[in-house]
Structures are given as C-alpha cells and as structure tokens.
Amino acid sequence: MQIFVKTLTGKTITLEVEPSDTIENVKAKIQDKEGIPPDQQRSIFAGKQLEDGRTLSDYNIQKESTLHLVLR
C-alpha cells in the first residue's frame, strides 16, 4: 500500500509499505529516499509519536494515510 510522509519543509514523500511493516522499517525506507538517519526521525500520526517496534497496523495506518516527519 502507499502512504505519504510530509516533512516540515512541506515536501511529501510517497512510500510503498505493508500494514505489517514496523515503524523502524518505514524510517529505513525514508532514509533510502531522503538520506535522513532513522535516529533523527520522529514520525507523528494523528497527533501521536510512533514507536519503532510497533507496526503500521498497530496505529491503524491505512493506505494513503499521511505521516508527519519531524527531525530531532
């Protein structure tokens, strides 16, 4: 499925993911596309910070959902 990741600069990245993917996985995909190390990424969805060990389905993130990426 496709999800979108919006950065603070307003750029939107499209990722191909599975509901079973962990947040860690997703951060690795963002690193592949953007070169941002996962330890600098904070992902926010529906106002909640997403934890690395959880999966997209844990957070009820579905296709075409938009995550927000904040850098630390």
Rank of each mutant, 00 (worst) to 15 (best):
M1S: 03
M1P: 01
Q2Y: 13
Q2N: 09
Q2E: 08
I3N: 01
I3A: 00
V5G: 00
V5M: 03
K6Y: 08
K6M: 10
T7K: 02
T7S: 06
T7V: 10
T7H: 04
L8Y: 13
L8D: 12
T9Y: 12
T9H: 12
G10P: 00
G10D: 03
G10L: 02
K11N: 08
K11G: 06
K11C: 09
K11E: 09
T12K: 07
T12G: 03
I13M: 05
I13W: 08
I13D: 01
I13C: 03
T14F: 06
T14P: 06
T14L: 10
L15Q: 01
L15D: 00
L15T: 00
L15G: 00
E16D: 13
E16T: 13
E16R: 09
E16W: 14
E16Y: 13
E16Q: 11
V17A: 04
V17D: 00
V17L: 02
V17Y: 03
V17M: 03
V17G: 01
E18Q: 12
E18V: 13
E18F: 14
E18K: 14
P19Q: 06
S20W: 13
S20D: 11
S20R: 08
S20P: 04
D21K: 01
D21S: 06
D21Y: 06
D21W: 12
T22Q: 02
T22I: 04
T22E: 01
T22A: 03
T22R: 05
I23P: 01
E24K: 11
E24Q: 12
E24V: 06
N25W: 10
N25V: 14
N25S: 14
N25F: 11
V26Q: 00
V26G: 02
K27W: 11
K27D: 02
A28D: 06
A28Q: 13
A28I: 13
K29M: 13
I30V: 08
I30K: 13
Q31G: 08
D32L: 13
D32G: 08
D32T: 09
D32V: 11
D32R: 11
D32P: 02
K33S: 10
K33V: 12
E34W: 15
E34M: 15
E34L: 15
G35I: 03
G35L: 05
G35F: 06
G35N: 07
G35Q: 06
G35R: 07
I36S: 07
I36Q: 05
I36F: 11
P37E: 09
P37R: 10
P37H: 12
P37D: 08
P37A: 12
P38K: 15
D39L: 08
D39R: 08
Q40I: 11
Q40V: 12
Q40T: 09
Q40M: 12
Q41A: 10
R42G: 14
S43Q: 14
S43G: 12
S43N: 11
S43M: 15
I44L: 14
I44Q: 05
I44P: 03
I44G: 04
I44D: 03
F45G: 02
F45Y: 13
F45C: 09
F45W: 14
F45M: 05
F45V: 05
F45S: 04
F45E: 02
A46H: 13
A46I: 06
A46Y: 15
G47E: 07
K48G: 07
K48W: 08
Q49G: 05
Q49V: 15
Q49F: 15
Q49T: 14
Q49N: 10
Q49K: 10
L50K: 00
L50F: 04
E51R: 08
E51I: 09
E51K: 07
D52C: 07
D52Q: 04
G53T: 09
G53Q: 10
G53L: 09
G53R: 07
G53N: 13
R54M: 13
R54L: 11
T55P: 10
T55I: 06
T55M: 10
T55Y: 04
L56N: 02
L56Y: 02
L56T: 00
S57M: 11
S57R: 12
S57L: 10
D58E: 10
D58P: 00
Y59D: 01
Y59V: 03
Y59M: 03
N60M: 07
N60V: 04
I61V: 08
I61Y: 00
I61P: 00
Q62P: 08
Q62V: 13
Q62E: 10
Q62L: 10
K63S: 14
K63G: 13
K63W: 06
K63H: 15
E64H: 14
E64I: 03
E64W: 14
E64G: 15
S65A: 12
S65V: 02
S65F: 06
S65K: 02
S65W: 06
S65P: 01
T66F: 07
T66I: 13
L67S: 01
L67M: 05
L67I: 14
L67Q: 01
L67H: 00
L67G: 02
L67N: 01
H68R: 08
H68F: 14
H68E: 11
H68S: 06
L69F: 05
L69G: 00
V70T: 07
V70I: 12
V70W: 08
V70E: 09
L71V: 11
L71F: 08
L71E: 10
L71T: 09
R72P: 12
